[in-house]
Computed example of a mutant assay.
Amino acid sequence: MLTTTLQNSCAAFALLFLVCSCDKSRVFDEYKSLNGKWNKDSIVSFSFDQKDTVSKYNMFINVRSNNAYPYNNLYLIVQMQDPGTKLVKVDTLEYQMANPDGTLMGQGFSDVKESKLWYKEKVNFPKAGKYKVSIQHAVRKGGQVPGVEELEGITDLGFRIETTE
């Protein structure tokens, strides 16, 4: 009986190690929960330490959405602040979130889909230190100037950095 328990524990540990070690390109990967609604004034921020200023990296914004998301596209304002400075790089980005028939794009088997959206490709960090990325939605209804107050259907927002090698 003890041998079976030990074998099961070893098998579970080996499986956990295998799953965790498969993602060798990941440098940073973090999610923040939005509980299905994202207020237009809510800024989601991620901070990370970067020591390597030579290698190239790809950066992604990961969005988990569900069928309550009412739009085809997602507009984001993304700011990245370099360490030790007030220098902020701002990008306004647009991503397609739904197919022409209205079904959500992305990976997943349930009504929650995860979309891995390109932010920056093959970039290097100019200096070592703590970087901060801030993301805010900028979705508007067609023909209207004010932004959507409560963007429904976004459950989680993530930020990921991967090596290019």
Rank of each mutant, 00 (worst) to 15 (best):
Q79Y: 07
M80N: 07
Q81D: 11
Q81V: 12
Q81R: 15
Q81G: 09
D82L: 15
D82Y: 11
D82W: 09
P83T: 07
G84A: 05
G84V: 03
T85R: 03
T85D: 04
T85K: 03
K86M: 14
L87R: 15
L87P: 08
V88F: 02
K89G: 07
V90Y: 00
D91L: 11
L93F: 01
E94T: 15
Y95F: 15
Y95S: 05
Q96E: 13
Q96T: 15
M97R: 00
A98I: 02
A98F: 04
A98R: 11
N99D: 12
P100C: 01
P100Q: 01
P100F: 04
D101P: 09
D101Q: 06
D101A: 07
G102M: 05
G102A: 06
T103Q: 08
T103Y: 05
M105S: 06
G106I: 05
Q107Y: 15
G108Q: 00
G108W: 03
G108R: 03
G108C: 03
F109H: 10
F109A: 13
D111W: 12
V112Q: 11
V112A: 09
K113Q: 03
E114A: 09
S115Y: 03
S115Q: 14
K116R: 11
K116H: 10
K116I: 10
K116C: 07
K116P: 03
K116V: 12
W118Q: 10
W118F: 11
Y119K: 05
Y119L: 07
Y119E: 00
Y119H: 07
E121L: 14
K122R: 14
K122Y: 13
K122I: 11
K122S: 15
K122D: 15
V123R: 02
V123T: 07
V123G: 02
N124F: 14
N124H: 13
N124D: 12
F125L: 03
F125R: 01
F125M: 04
P126I: 07
P126F: 05
P126S: 08
K127W: 04
K127D: 07
K127Q: 14
K127G: 05
G129T: 06
G129Y: 05
G129C: 07
G129S: 07
K130Q: 13
Y131L: 05
Y131A: 04
K132Y: 04
K132R: 08
K132I: 08
V133N: 02
V133L: 00
S134H: 00
I135W: 02
I135K: 02
I135L: 01
I135F: 00
Q136V: 08
Q136K: 13
Q136N: 11
H137D: 06
A138Y: 14
A138M: 14
A138G: 15
